[in-house]
Design a protein around this nucleic acid. Structure first.
Lengths: 130, 130
DNA sequence: ATATCAGTTTAGAATGATTCTAATGTATTG
DNA sequence: CAATACATTAGAATCATTCTAAACTGATAT
């Protein structure tokens, strides 16, 4: 991504040093799945010196602006996905790793939702192992 | 369920007072989705006087024996499902409520899993709202 | 029955991810 | 460049869950 500062401003986010570093990493064109922890590790390697609190704040700020998707895969941590298009996932518990499924999948036979409720979105998680 | 003690023994679980109470509630024939918290509240109402630690232990013991399914729906708590058959769910975030989908659903168009991995199970979560 | 002992329960401490607090720093606006 | 609204931060707080280790109880052998 070329002009991260402009990109952040477009999304009503002040382009602070920390946000620029994080956005540059997250939105480099390669879709990623990160947790606060994995992002923190990556930033440590880059010697970015960004506090954990800011990492959490930034992930949530980006999420609020629709730049990230939140994935509830397991109860140990929250995953954020830079691919905000509707899509599904493979998940390997063993490797604690998510893989995007970017092809169209159809779910047939969904029953009627309960009264006064409507379907918001359908999430398919394909569990892998070995 | 008629003979809970026998049922527990069959599953290599000692039928302690606490387990009998919890199993009687969980396996009464009506499928349930519980968290440690909702189960604790229910037991408090019954004045069962079972400690939180035991509730956690028991849920895990039952899970280990395959009597419960674990559902990873959100990162705030772990859901246990008394329906251990393969099935899917509606989920209303607003109501923090899960509803079983017991009809057969087919997911078409699943791509090949990565090398050396095979598909273990497919989980469909239908998010509701309003 | 009763003693024995492995398996259970429990209160309270520990853990670990996340959120909060409130003090300090910084981007933006005029 | 001064004012101020918004951000960052270290460390404390929170909350679900797990751990600890002491007290208890169901099963088994006598």
């Amino acid at each position: 991504m070329k002009d991260i500062k402009h990109f952040l401003r477009q999304n009503s986010l002040r382009p602070t040093k920390q946000r620029v570093i994080i956005a540059n990493y997250l939105f480099d064109g390669v879709n990623k799945h990160v947790t606060a922890e994995t992002l923190s590790n990556k930033l440590l390697k880059m010697k970015a010196g960004i506090s954990l609190a800011t990492i959490y704040n930034t992930l949530h700020d980006f999420y609020e602006k629709g730049l990230l998707k939140k994935l509830m895969i397991n109860s140990e941590r929250i995953y954020f996905d830079t691919n905000t298009e509707h899509h599904h996932h493979f998940y390997s518990k063993k490797d604690q790793k998510l893989i995007d499924i970017n092809v169209d999948m159809k779910v047939n036979g969904i029953p009627k939702p309960p009264k006064n409720k409507k379907i918001n979105k359908i999430e398919v998680l394909v569990h892998l192992d070995n």
